Amino acid sequence: MSDNKEFLSEKSSSVKNILIIGATGYIGGALCRQFSHTQDFAVLALVRPSSNIEAIKPFCKEIIRSQEVEISNNDVAEAIRKHDITTVINVAWHMPPEPTKEAQFAKDRIALEAALHGARAVSPDIHVITTSGNFSLITTAGGRITEIPPPKGYRWPEYLVCFDLLSGVNVLKDALVEEYISNGGNASIVYPSSVYGCAPTRGSFWDFAIQQFITGKPYQGYQPFPPDFMTAWIHVEDLADCYIAAARKGSKGGHYLAAPENLSISQISTLFAKAAQVEFLAPVFENKDKVIFDDSHTREILQLQWKYKVADEVKVWVKRIKELGTYFLE
């Protein structure tokens, strides 16, 4: 465990303790850093016994190691009771990815169910914030995408077939959360769009996905995305601010979309290539499904203003990828 005296001296007695599961990951590391800068929250991280905690230690009031190989309901419940936790955030995702969504779901649901059921075992008032993905919201109808979950039985557009694993897993995990909420549980879902930028720990999925699109070659077993792949983008620190706002709001059944900038894979890769000073002729992009992400409702109810823009941050992003050793463009 880590006992950070700096937090004890700087934070007042009114500070709420927040428990983060998945704190050593890309988004989790950014959450630890951003929450530590607030005046009303202190960070406690619940990690696996094998997790490397060095990068997040400066931001955590305490780091709790799971008693088991995987995080359990008892780990979460014990942490809540011992440290008077008011909010649990789960951003854990099993890495490396499994070959099928069913196998991935079997791994991912462990931490998710531990967060939900561990909180419920202590008090129905404990707020659990879970993480999904914006691709889970897109249907064949396309058009304006908000934080409203799609109806059961919906189909994805053809260009999203390549993303079946992650989207399919998120849909399955969302169903667990919706069932928890319908049974009286206090939970919310955050839908991050494609996340970029610098975090204290490892890099983003998009660090290599953008580069493989520019080269047009498979990388680490993945095929490049199709040119008409439409998404939205959010800086990892803006996303962390969304979680902070959701924690402050504490609304049962909240659904929040964090999607500031609508850019296709072709458009984002053009910006990336320019920042990396490599030649790249982007395919012509046609938004055939007329997909537009609209997070105005989330911004209104959480009183959020996004600080970052891709065009301003892409050079720093490329520099960070080089520092991580994940840069492979010629």
Rank of each mutant, 00 (worst) to 15 (best):
L176I: 11
L165M: 03
S50I: 02
K61S: 07
D312Y: 09
R48W: 14
S167Q: 06
M95F: 15
G203R: 07
A103P: 00
F135A: 13
E62C: 11
S50E: 08
I53R: 13
A259S: 14
N52Q: 11
I126H: 03
C242K: 02
S14T: 06
E300P: 00
S9N: 11
R155G: 05
P226R: 02
C32M: 01
K319C: 15
H127I: 03
D238S: 02
Q223D: 15
R33G: 00
S264I: 00
L137P: 06
N287T: 06
Q104I: 05
S188K: 01
I27R: 02
K173H: 04
S167T: 09
K16F: 07
K249T: 00
Y327D: 08
I292K: 12
F225P: 02
P97A: 01
Y327H: 10
S50K: 03
L165C: 06
I148L: 07
S14N: 09
E102Q: 00
L166S: 03
T326M: 01
G185L: 09
I321L: 12
F41Q: 02
E113P: 00
V91N: 03
V69S: 10
S182E: 14
I321D: 15
A275E: 14
E147C: 00
Q277L: 02
S2F: 11
E113T: 11
Y154H: 11
Y196L: 03
A30C: 00
S167G: 11
P260S: 04
N17W: 08
K5G: 10
N262L: 05
L172V: 04
C32V: 01
S36A: 10
E113F: 12
S123D: 07
V318H: 15
